[in-house]
Design a protein around this nucleic acid. Sequence first.
DNA 1: TTGTACGCGTTATCAT
DNA 2: ATGATAACGCGTACAA
Lengths: 333, 333
Amino acid sequence: MSDVAKYANVSTATVSRALQHPESVKEETRQKVLAAITALNYTPNVLARQLRRMETKTILVVVPNIENNVFSQLLSGIDAVANQKGYKVLLGNINHKVDKIYDYLDHFRQRQIDGMIMLISDLSDHILQDLANELPLVITPDSSDDAIVPTVVVDNVGSSQRATEHLISLGHRRLAHIAGPLHLSSSKSRLEGYRQALHENGIRFDHELVKAGDFTIQAGFKQMEQLLLMEVPPTAVFCASDEIAMGAIKRIKQHGLKVPEDIAIVGFDNVKFSSIFEPALTTMAQPLEEMGRQSMKVLIDRMNGKTLSKNHFIYSADLIIRESCGAHLNKRE
Amino acid sequence: MSDVAKYANVSTATVSRALQHPESVKEETRQKVLAAITALNYTPNVLARQLRRMETKTILVVVPNIENNVFSQLLSGIDAVANQKGYKVLLGNINHKVDKIYDYLDHFRQRQIDGMIMLISDLSDHILQDLANELPLVITPDSSDDAIVPTVVVDNVGSSQRATEHLISLGHRRLAHIAGPLHLSSSKSRLEGYRQALHENGIRFDHELVKAGDFTIQAGFKQMEQLLLMEVPPTAVFCASDEIAMGAIKRIKQHGLKVPEDIAIVGFDNVKFSSIFEPALTTMAQPLEEMGRQSMKVLIDRMNGKTLSKNHFIYSADLIIRESCGAHLNKRE
DNA sequence: TTGTACGCGTTATCAT
DNA sequence: ATGATAACGCGTACAA
């Protein structure tokens, strides 16, 4: 930079200004500086700038597992607006080991990041709160409703209620639910939506018909097995994720039954493969990429010190009717 | 840091030494410093350290599209060893827009990254070469064989040959190939493997039986359509990716034919969903996570200035036999 | 073994 | 509108 200054016959301060606050510099000198810069092929040292400004223009995204399509879609949205706004995104794949979050927290303590988006909610509320007091933080897509931390979520209760009601409208009265890990609030909310749908339609809630595991294919397979063992198995199952739904369907087929003829299924997420699965999954589509974008936008506002009028952004999921629910067949009476 | 120094009655230099070169400091003073550090709850400012050392301990991973399971698996492996070795990984999702790579190159010019792993090979060889001269660079999993840049790849030719030979061994003589984008060397190599398998088994290579698109389900669907239109359609298809295979199978079913009875299919990648697809995909499994790990290891060596005896690391893919190839049925004669 | 002092490349403050 | 200078926090050459 001092070379540039010399070459342009100005001080380093002016060079800096020409780049940072072009309006505060005479057009003529600005041109001189610019010329010098290209002549010497100078690029600013961002490290020094960061040290001076105490900011990194970098955010950290903590993700439970990149290989899950849900998270990669969110990540994709986050990355898109981050780039557009000049932020870099640091990947924090904790691979389901919650403890690893603490390692990443050091990044912040050492001022290596300006903010953070968490794609996981396993942390207790007060830890999150402490964190949020220290640095700009946004949580998505799973968060308890009463969090004071800004969140971007889908209306899990309402969406699940609609999914369940769709099955009810198809004539089902004996509906099961395969939930995700019940310590996650999204799982709890989806269960709650299922329960409300039953309630409003005068169907008794039965504990036996609710199984919980994690969000994987394997869990769906295993929980469905339990359901099939019942004296009177359900005629429809609302699954808390598409992967669960796929696992469940696989198990049903193995049992010699058909989906949706014998048992109807609705999933959640609208994961990429849900449309080519057989039968194609009826599912609740979360606008994941959009939610990722919004998370980043909220975070940026936060980092810029804007006090937001709104802290929680709630999206609604779309019911995508395909084959696994049986809506395309004759309705039952 | 100066606070720590004061608290411990030493100079800042000693504090620094106590942390960087513990052996060059008396045990007693080291303890004093450590005590002061915990007492004041001091954490070093990494930015300043980086400025001083001119290194960031950060690498950039350029990925064509995070939502693709192949890349997220690689990323997962990269991230794992990066963390372990104290590196941060910056995500560069270019979303198939090759031009965006140039934006990321600025990160390097501005010394924001120490090295780079590219999960894409669309760049011409000499651009890559130029890049590699400027900074540590590793390319995976798609790269031309003659690249001077370090690469971590799968043996595409050999693997594809084995995949094709598997179909031949099942009695097929009229085999088609649906390739990926032919400007990618991995696509070219897979086509070459297919060709060699035919050649070595005395089967004439027929241009008509080779279709190319990209690696997506949609492409597989579309290319299979062409194949089905032929007067004598193939009895087996080797697909350059699992997604292509899924699309192709979908089209075949729509046509009223069965897989593998009427047409046998082999895919490539062993993507997560390939095992629950119906029929379950026979495919070539790349050790993607391991390849990601290896890429990061090679990059670290590079960044440490080690001259590697070996620049190209070639993994072999495993043939995973499931249902889509028909091996579980009676063999044809 | 430890302290002094400089420099890494910027940017902000204060003068001019 | 511009220049001189201090400061960001650390690591290291040199001196002691």
